[in-house]
């Protein structure tokens, strides 16, 4: 039965992907481009060469973590879209702590920075969970507002209190220093953040799939009344899923600092959080599927440059494809249970 529902999910998700690609093809055809050539470039830019695969995996690393930020609370029935803000808060907290750790042994300092980023992101989204549970504040609007607040606070900090005036290109914070940066996975140009993302997804998958806690969260997400009747600690579960989800996105911010930039600036705000929402929905909130969907969407982002160079498409073309994919995935939800072959055989 599990295999059948898995096959149904895979089939409908593939259909949604196909539908989005057809719409996108029609869209580029309006520009006088050949859809097939654009698809080919899309594939080439995402998975065609070792270089593009490395690019794709680099893009996928933060998407796995921000995907968890939406996926985990969704299991408890909350629609959290604050990954962008949690990532920024995590990144800023990482810099604040990391800048004071100059003399520390790097492994210890990196571990401390990871914990700081995760804690900051966790508290950020956890606060939204608390407001939801004890105040009835709509978590979707709340977390979206928190995104804008996080970005404004970061802009304030990097243009004033923690600004590094040696950085002239754009306002940026103090740097954590080259010594505390983590490098690439051996033999690749993909940074260690990918390993963090995959491990986080595997851990949360285990948590949701193989523990009583995960089972209880799924009851809450399926039916609040049932959870109340069973006497489950609903508030604690809402808080926990929001905290862990936010911690994942905060860790993504840490990784952007310790593996990519070394300092906080507007380079943190490139839409990883918003893409993570799509990752979670496409993965149907399953942490294991998040890994693969993040790689798929990372591929779409990675191919943006090639589409731009070869066809003169604006870089927002990948945003359009993502948006179409999101709509197609949601519309695809209506197909569940409609096909006989996926139904369990009658007893």
């Amino acid at each position: 039965m599990l295999a059948r529902s898995g096959a149904e999910t895979a089939a409908i998700s593939a259909a949604a992907l196909l539908g989005a690609l057809v719409l996108f093809g029609a869209f580029v055809a309006l520009r006088g481009l050949s859809p097939l050539e654009v698809y080919a470039a899309l594939f080439l830019g995402a998975f065609g060469t070792w270089f593009s695969i490395e690019q794709t995996l680099t893009q996928a690393a933060p998407l796995m973590l921000t995907g968890l930020c939406t996926a985990l609370p969704a299991r408890a029935g909350l629609l959290v879209i604050g990954g962008e803000g949690a990532l920024v808060v995590g990144g800023v907290a990482t810099v604040l702590v990391g800048a004071t750790l100059a003399g520390w042994p790097p492994p210890l300092a990196v571990a401390l920075m990871c914990m700081t980023g995760a804690l900051a992101g966790g508290l950020w989204i956890g606060a939204a969970g608390a407001l939801r549970h004890w105040r009835g504040v709509n978590e979707t609007i709340c977390t979206l507002l928190l995104n804008y607040i996080a970005i404004a606070v970061m802009n304030h900090l990097v243009t004033g209190p923690i600004r590094d005036f040696a950085q002239v290109l754009k306002p940026a914070s103090w740097s954590i220093g080259e010594r505390l940066m983590i490098g690439e996975l051996p033999g690749t140009s993909v940074h260690w953040g990918l390993a963090f993302g995959v491990v986080a997804c595997l851990l949360t998958w285990g948590l949701m799939r193989h523990t009583t806690f995960g089972f209880a969260v799924d009851i809450l997400g399926g039916n609040v009344r049932a959870a109340q009747m069973a006497g489950l600690p609903i508030g604690a579960m809402v808080l926990a899923t929001c905290f862990v989800g936010g911690a994942a996105a905060g860790l993504a911010g840490t990784i952007e600092i310790v593996a990519v930039h070394g300092f906080a600036s507007s380079s943190l705000v490139v839409g990883y959080g918003y893409a993570g929402i799509l990752v979670a929905f496409l993965a149907r909130q399953n942490p294991l599927a998040v890994v693969f969907v993040a790689i798929l969407l990372g591929g779409i982002s990675a191919s943006g440059g090639l589409l731009q160079r070869r066809f003169g498409l604006p870089d927002a073309a990948t945003l359009v494809l993502r948006g179409l994919l999101f709509v197609a995935v949601l519309a695809g939800n209506t197909l569940y249970g409609r096909f006989k072959i996926f139904r369990p055989p009658a007893a």
Binding site: L313, P314, A316, L319, V320, R322, G323, V327, V329, T334
Partner: peptide, 24 residues
């Protein structure tokens, strides 16, 4: 209007699609 589709989620999707399309 399709059955089993959440209007809030559709709104988020159109938020992203709308801004992407406008930039494009």
């Amino acid at each position: 209007t399709l059955p089993r589709v959440n209007d809030i989620a559709v709104g988020i999707a159109l938020f992203l699609l709308g801004t992407g399309l406008a930039f494009y």
